[in-house]
C-alpha cells in the first residue's frame, strides 16, 4: 500500500487544562476527501490548525507524505507551502485585488515571476468562472465569490493537501451551493482534502470518509452512508438529529 498523504497518530492537543483533541488517528490517502463533522467546539478547527502547524500538538505524530511534520526540527513555513488552507472568513487580503491575492504566494514563496504567476492565476480564475473579477477588490465580491477566490488562492501553490474549515458557514444558502460545487469540482480532479463542515448533504457527496468528532475524540468514522444514515453511536445519531432539525440535511 502506498504512503497516505496525511496520517495522524494519537494526536492530542490541550489549551491549558482544557483537552481539545484526544487520541486522534486518521489516514488520508491520495485523491480522497475526509470530512469532519461534529458540534460547535468539538475541535474541528483546532485539528485543521494543528495539521497546518498553526497550533502545536501536545502528543502524537502528524505525517505528511510519510514525513513527521510534528518533529521540532521541521520548518513550519516549509510544510505550509505544501498545504492549502481556507478558513471560515477573513481569508482574502482586503488591500489587494483578486489577482494580487492569488499571485502573492506563488511570487513571494515559490519564486515565480509576476507574469508567470498572473498567467496561472487567470487560468484558475477562468476555470472557476471568476475571470471577470480578477481586478476587483474583495469587498466588491459576494461572500461566495470571496470563498471561491480563497480556494483558488490556495490552489495556486499546487498543494498536496487542501484543508477547508467550514468554508460555507458564513454564507447564506444560495451562495453555499456555488462554493460547494467548486469543492466538488476539485474532488473530481483528484485533490486530496480534509474538510470540516456543517453541511451534511455536501459531506455525503464529496466525502470518502466521514469522522464524527465529539469533545475532541473521534467517536465514529466510516463511509458517508454508514455514518450519516446508519450511525451506530447514540451521540452521532443525536447530533445528526439536531442538524436535521436545524434544516441542514
Amino acid at each position: 500500500m502506498s504512503i497516505p498523504v496525511l496520517a495522524l497518530e494519537k494526536v492530542r492537543k490541550a489549551f491549558g487544562s482544557e483537552v481539545v483533541l484526544e487520541d486522534i488517528s486518521i489516514t488520508v490517502p491520495e485523491h480522497t476527501a475526509t470530512v469532519f463533522i461534529g458540534a460547535s467546539g468539538s475541535g474541528k478547527s483546532t485539528l485543521l490548525r494543528c495539521i497546518n502547524l498553526l497550533e502545536q500538538i501536545d502528543d502524537g505524530v502528524i505525517r505528511l507524505d510519510g514525513q513527521d511534520i510534528s518533529d521540532v526540527s521541521v520548518d513550519p513555513d516549509e510544510i505550509r507551502r505544501k498545504l492549502g488552507m481556507v478558513f471560515q472568513s477573513f481569508n482574502l487580503f482586503p488591500h489587494m485585488s483578486v489577482v494580487e491575492n492569488i499571485i502573492l504566494a506563488p511570487m513571494r514563496v515559490h519564486g515565480k515571476s509576476r507574469d508567470e504567476a498572473i498567467v496561472e492565476a487567470l487560468e484558475l480564475l477562468t476555470r472557476f468562472g471568476l475571470r471577470e473579477k480578477a481586478e476587483q477588490y474583495p469587498d466588491r465580491l459576494s461572500g461566495g465569490q470571496q470563498q471561491r477566490v480563497a480556494i483558488i488562492r490556495s490552489l495556486a501553490v499546487k498543494p498536496r493537501l487542501l484543508l477547508l474549515d467550514e468554508i460555507t458557514s458564513a454564507l447564506d444558502p444560495v451562495l453555499v451551493n456555488e462554493v460547494l460545487s467548486t469543492v466538488r469540482d476539485l474532488k473530481e480532479h483528484g485533490m486530496t482534502m480534509l474538510l470540516a463542515t456543517h453541511e451534511m448533504g455536501f459531506a455525503k457527496q464529496v466525502a470518502d470518509e466521514v469522522c464524527f468528532l465529539e469533545h475532541g475524540r473521534i467517536l465514529e468514522w466510516g463511509k458517508p452512508e454508514e455514518i450519516l444514515e446508519n450511525a451506530k453511536k447514540s451521540q452521532t445519531k443525536e447530533f445528526l438529529k439536531r442538524v436535521h432539525e436545524a434544516g441542514r440535511l
Binding site: R49, N52, L54, P76, D77, R80, R81, L83, G84, M85, F87, S89, F90, N91, L92, F93, P94, H95, L104, A105, R108, V109, H110, A150, R153, S154, V157
Partner: peptide, 24 residues
C-alpha cells in the same frame, strides 16, 4: 485570521508583516 491566512500560504513571518499586516 489575516496572519493565519498569510502563514497558511507559506509566507514567512517577515513576509506576512510586509505584504499583509503592515499595508493594512
Amino acid at each position: 485570521s489575516q496572519r493565519a491566512a498569510a502563514r497558511s500560504l507559506g509566507l514567512s513571518n517577515m513576509q506576512t508583516l510586509r505584504y499583509v499586516v503592515l499595508p493594512q
